[in-house]
Structures are given as C-alpha cells and as structure tokens.
Simulated scan of single mutants.
Amino acid sequence: MPEINHINLKNAEGLVYCCLRNKLVKLDEEQEQTFCKMCKMYAGPAGGRGVECVWEDMRDVGNPHVVTDPHEEFKMNQMRQVGPNFLSTLIVFG
C-alpha cells in the first residue's frame, strides 16, 4: 500500500480531517502544537492553508490527495473494504 501525501486544506470554519484522531478538528495553534507536530504522519503546514500528512491510504486516490471538504473526507475514511479472507473468517467462526 503506497504512502499518500494528503494535503488537508482548512474549510471556512477552519476544520480539517485528522487521520490520527479520526475526526474533524479545528486547525489552530493548539491542535498543531499538541497533535500535528508530534504525529509521525505530519508532513508540513500546507503553505499555511492547512496541514499535510503522509499515510498509507487504502482508497484509490491521487498522490498528492488534496482535501477541500473535511466532512466528505471524514465520511470516506469511515468506509472499509472487506476482503474475501474476512468473509471466510465470519463464515467459519461466525
């Protein structure tokens, strides 16, 4: 699975999707100092317009993946693909 550079641009409310916390966060000084700067996925401030994060993304997205709608990005990251091995396990142990 390739590492994808996610460029998360702040929306009008100053929100971005945070993969580490799996939620929408207000990208302010506290968020950046408390979470972003300490996060292994952190890749920079996106030119002051948001935050860049690099992580393995199972989705079929471009690289870089530019996010302008954090609500949609959150929703899309809640969907998980279920492969045949998982289904087999459910049949055997379910």
Rank of each mutant, 00 (worst) to 15 (best):
T34K: 13
G14P: 07
D69L: 04
H65E: 03
E3A: 15
T89Y: 13
Q81D: 09
A43C: 04
N11D: 15
N22R: 15
F86G: 00
Y17I: 05
I91P: 00
N63P: 02
Y17A: 05
V25G: 08
C19M: 12
V82E: 02
L87N: 08
H6V: 09
K40I: 10
P70K: 07
G14A: 06
E56Y: 00
M76Y: 03
Y17M: 12
A12Q: 12
E73A: 14
L87E: 14
P2S: 15
G50M: 07
V92D: 12
A43G: 06
Q78H: 07
M38W: 00
G44C: 05
I7S: 04
A12R: 13
G50S: 05
D60M: 08
I7H: 04
N63F: 03
D28R: 04
E52M: 10
D60Y: 06
M38Q: 15
A46V: 05
V61P: 07
N22A: 11
P64N: 03
E72M: 13
Q78A: 05
V54M: 06
C36R: 10
M58I: 10
A12S: 14
H65C: 11
F93W: 01
G48N: 02
I91W: 06
N8D: 08
N8E: 10
V61N: 03
I7C: 02
C18T: 02
D28C: 09
N85M: 11
L90W: 07
N22P: 00
A12I: 06
K23C: 14
N85V: 13
F93Q: 14
N85W: 07
G50V: 08
T68P: 00
N22D: 14
A46T: 04
V16N: 06
E32I: 11
A46G: 03
L87T: 09
M1P: 14
G94M: 08
D69Q: 04
G44W: 05
P2L: 12
L15N: 10
C53M: 13
R80L: 11
V51P: 01
L20C: 08
N85A: 12
E30T: 13
C36V: 11
S88V: 00
G83N: 10
Y42D: 03
Y42T: 01
R49S: 12
L9C: 01
I91C: 00
K10I: 11
E30R: 08
F86E: 15
E3M: 15
V25Y: 00
N22M: 13
F35A: 11
Q78L: 15
P70E: 06
Y42I: 04
V92F: 06
A12F: 05
N11W: 03
L9F: 05
M76D: 09
L27F: 11
V61T: 07
Y42E: 00
F35R: 03
K26C: 08
G94V: 06
G94K: 09
L20H: 11
G62W: 01
L24F: 01
T34V: 13
P45C: 03
D60P: 00
M38V: 01
